[in-house]
Amino acid sequence: MGGKYSYWLEQAFFQKNSQLFEDKNYKRFIKEMIHTNLECVRINLNMEGKVWSCCPKNWKSFSSSCYFFSTDAKSWNSSQENCSRMAAHLVVINSKEEQDFLTQNMDKTAAYFVGLSDPEGQGHWQWVDQTPYNQSATFWHPGEPSHSEEHCVIVNHPSISLQWGWNVILCKDRHRSVCEMMKIYL
Results as ranks from 00 to 15, higher is better:
41 V>I: 11
173 D>Q: 10
130 Q>M: 09
40 C>G: 05
118 D>F: 00
20 L>S: 13
165 G>T: 00
164 W>L: 00
12 A>D: 14
75 S>C: 12
134 N>H: 05
104 Q>V: 03
186 L>F: 08
36 T>S: 14
137 A>I: 05
67 Y>F: 15
86 M>C: 04
141 H>F: 01
105 N>R: 12
161 S>V: 00
157 H>N: 14
116 L>P: 01
55 C>N: 08
72 D>R: 13
113 F>M: 04
115 G>W: 09
183 K>C: 02
45 L>N: 09
87 A>P: 07
158 P>Q: 12
63 S>G: 07
77 N>Y: 14
157 H>P: 06
132 P>F: 06
121 G>A: 04
57 K>D: 09
66 C>H: 10
74 K>Q: 13
108 K>W: 10
68 F>Q: 01
88 A>D: 09
83 C>Q: 03
80 Q>N: 12
158 P>Y: 04
137 A>P: 00
103 T>Q: 11
136 S>F: 09
142 P>Q: 02
131 T>M: 09
75 S>T: 13
32 E>N: 15
110 A>Y: 11
120 E>C: 02
99 Q>W: 08
100 D>R: 07
100 D>K: 06
150 E>S: 00
62 F>H: 15
152 C>V: 00
17 N>F: 06
98 E>I: 01
17 N>K: 07
100 D>P: 01
127 W>M: 05
140 W>C: 00
152 C>G: 03
94 N>E: 15
123 G>D: 11
110 A>T: 08
127 W>R: 01
46 N>H: 08
161 S>T: 03
42 R>P: 10
14 F>P: 02
134 N>M: 03
140 W>G: 01
40 C>Q: 04
98 E>S: 06
125 W>A: 06
76 W>Q: 04
97 E>L: 04
86 M>E: 10
94 N>S: 15
170 L>E: 09
2 G>F: 08
71 T>M: 05
4 K>N: 14
80 Q>W: 01
41 V>C: 08
110 A>K: 15
81 E>W: 02
145 P>M: 02
128 V>N: 12
135 Q>P: 06
185 Y>V: 10
88 A>W: 13
60 K>I: 01
85 R>Y: 14
66 C>I: 12
143 G>T: 00
35 H>E: 06
58 N>L: 12
103 T>P: 05
137 A>L: 09
108 K>T: 15
179 C>G: 00
36 T>M: 08
126 Q>I: 08
92 V>W: 11
184 I>V: 15
21 F>N: 14
140 W>Y: 01
143 G>E: 07
64 S>W: 10
57 K>I: 03
45 L>R: 10
166 W>N: 02
86 M>Y: 10
121 G>Y: 03
21 F>L: 14
182 M>D: 07
167 N>L: 13
79 S>N: 12
31 K>R: 15
60 K>L: 11
46 N>V: 06
31 K>D: 12
164 W>V: 01
85 R>D: 14
144 E>Q: 13
39 E>F: 07
99 Q>L: 05
65 S>Y: 10
54 C>S: 09
167 N>A: 08
99 Q>P: 02
155 V>S: 06
93 I>M: 10
91 V>W: 02
35 H>D: 11
56 P>C: 02
108 K>P: 13
154 I>F: 03
77 N>T: 11
85 R>S: 11
133 Y>I: 08
138 T>F: 01
155 V>T: 07
64 S>L: 09
86 M>P: 04
